[in-house]
Every structure is written in structure tokens, then in C-alpha cells.
């Protein structure tokens, strides 16, 4: 691939030497609109269909309220602070668990990927743990840690640990042996090889793990908040349903989707900064 081909996408839509003619502006605008529609057209269509179908009574508005109503419920919840409390406690639970998983999984994964004997000895038990659903273990954690915050944070931690750990190990193991040999030829020590070749080579794979873990964290957050919680976005989804506050229920669901998108967006942005050398697929 040539430099020109690589550079081009960065200039789309903000090329400095564009003609300032009306025709040029119209064409530019229609190009931008076209590219926007091809990306978000289906999503917009889906949302429009929902709104229309619910307003016109094609579907039961009591179960699927119009989007306008849902957004209004979301807005009310945010303004009077009720949902803000839920968001805060949910972020605290999933954030604590995620950070703990990162602090454990990445160093452990880097170590396990490097030392074959350790990896060989620990892999079977890891595979068993990974295949054991964290949700199935939740009752066990509740027995051990009680029905409070600890068991909630721990079940999220448990579920987020494995994708990150296994991707980190995989990233380290899949670093090109030929690059390691090249570094050795220049006299690099084991530590230098690790720092200059293995670690940067494993970063893309670690990010795959981080993004999987972030998604898992939100998933387990909701599940844990549906059992024995009295606050949190997941609790709100269940609670609103019990009280038949369907717009509020959907507002909470929408909020969860937004949290997931924001977490993913933040990780992709971070990865772009750290891995400018490779193509990051958002």
C-alpha cells in the first residue's frame, strides 16, 4: 500500500483546497450525507419504524412505548436525579470490577504467556473456570460474600477476568518468533526483548480482551443488579417492569446501551492512540 492511499481517508470532508463554489458545497454536503446514511441509515430506519409503529398502534404501545415517551422518561429520570444515582452506583460496581480485572489479568497474562511451564500448568484450570458461567457461580459468591456489594463486584470481576487474561496470554504467545530472533541477533536481553518486542506486539490482542471484558462487565452488572439490589441501572430495569413503568424500563435499557457504546468508544480511541502503527477496527 502506498503512502497516498493510506493518507487519503484523513482528508475526506476537510480537504484544505476545495473550491468554494456553491455547486462544490452542495456536492460536498451530499457526499457527506451519503456517507452518513450508508453508515447510520439502517439504525435510523429502525428507530423511525419503532416510533411510527408505536404511535400508530401497529404494535402494543403499552409494551413498546413510542421513542419520544422513552426519551422523555429518560430525561425526567436524569433531571430529578433518580437515574443519576443508579448510574453512579452501577459505574462504581462495574468500574471497580473492571479495574481489578485489568490489574490482575494483564500482569498475570504477560507472565503466563512468557513462561511456558506456568502456562501449561495453569491452562486446564483456566479453561474450566472460563467455561463455568459466572452467573451460575453467583449464588456461590453470594454464599461466600453475602448479598451486598462484594458479591456483585466479585461476580463481575470473575467474568471480566478471563477474556482479558486469555487474550493477553494469546497476544504474548502469538508475537512473531522471527522478530524475537531478530532482537536477539542484536544482543537484546530477555528483558529488552520483552519490553521492546513482546509487549508492544501483544497490545492489539490485549485491547481485544479489554473490549470483550468491558462488554462482559456491563452484562454481568445488570444480572447481578437484578438479584438483591435496591439501586443501579439493572435494578431500575427490573423495578420499572414490576411497577409497569415501561417507558422508564426502556430508558434504563437505553442507558445501558449508551454505557456500552461509550466504553467501547473510549477503548477504541485509546487503542488508536497507542497503536497508530496498525489499523484499528472499531
Amino acid at each position: 500500500m502506498s503512502l497516498q492511499q493510506i493518507e487519503r481517508p484523513f482528508f475526506v470532508g476537510r480537504e484544505p483546497h476545495r473550491q468554494k463554489s456553491v455547486a462544490g458545497l452542495v456536492r460536498q454536503a451530499s457526499e457527506a450525507a451519503g456517507s452518513f446514511l450508508s453508515r447510520y441509515g439502517v439504525l435510523l430506519g429502525f428507530l423511525t419504524l419503532w416510533q411510527v409503529a408505536s404511535s400508530l398502534g401497529w404494535i402494543n404501545a403499552a409494551v413498546f412505548p413510542p421513542l419520544g415517551t422513552i426519551v422523555a422518561a429518560l430525561w425526567d429520570g436524569l433531571v430529578d436525579g433518580a437515574l443519576l444515582d443508579d448510574i453512579a452506583i452501577s459505574l462504581q460496581r462495574s468500574g471497580t470490577a473492571f479495574v481489578a480485572a485489568v490489574l490482575v489479568a494483564i500482569p498475570l497474562g504477560l507472565f503466563m504467556g512468557q513462561v511456558r511451564a506456568v502456562e501449561r500448568a495453569l491452562d486446564p484450570i483456566l479453561q474450566v473456570f472460563r467455561q463455568t458461567s459466572a452467573l451460575a457461580l453467583y449464588p456461590v459468591f453470594i454464599l461466600l460474600l453475602g448479598l451486598g456489594e462484594a458479591s456483585k463486584v466479585f461476580v463481575i470481576f470473575w467474568a471480566t477476568l478471563f477474556p482479558l487474561l486469555l487474550n493477553t496470554i494469546g497476544g504474548v504467545k502469538e508475537v512473531d518468533k522471527k522478530l524475537i530472533e531478530m532482537a536477539r541477533v542484536y544482543g537484546a536481553s530477555r528483558l529488552t526483548v520483552f519490553r521492546r518486542v513482546v509487549l508492544p506486539g501483544a497490545v492489539p490482542s490485549i485491547f481485544v480482551g479489554l473490549r470483550l471484558s468491558a462488554t462482559t462487565a456491563l452484562l454481568l452488572l445488570i444480572a447481578s443488579e437484578m438479584i438483591g439490589a435496591n439501586k443501579g441501572v439493572g435494578f431500575q430495569v427490573m423495578n420499572a417492569q414490576y411497577n409497569f413503568q415501561i417507558p422508564l424500563m426502556f430508558a434504563a435499557i437505553l442507558l445501558l446501551a449508551a454505557l456500552g457504546l461509550i466504553a467501547n468508544f473510549a477503548l477504541v480511541a485509546l487503542q488508536r492512540r497507542l497503536c497508530r502503527w496498525s489499523e484499528v477496527i472499531g
Binding site: 512473531d176 522471527k178 522478530l179 530472533e181 531478530m182 521492546r196 518486542v197 508492544p200 506486539g201 497490545v203 497503536c275 502503527w277 496498525s278
Partner: peptide
């Protein structure tokens, strides 16, 4: 080597 063996992040 036969392959350039460049570090892609540098």
C-alpha cells in the same frame, strides 16, 4: 534475513 523482520510499531 529473508524477511525484513521490522517491528511494525516503529
Amino acid at each position: 534475513f529473508q524477511e525484513p523482520r521490522l517491528l511494525p510499531w516503529l
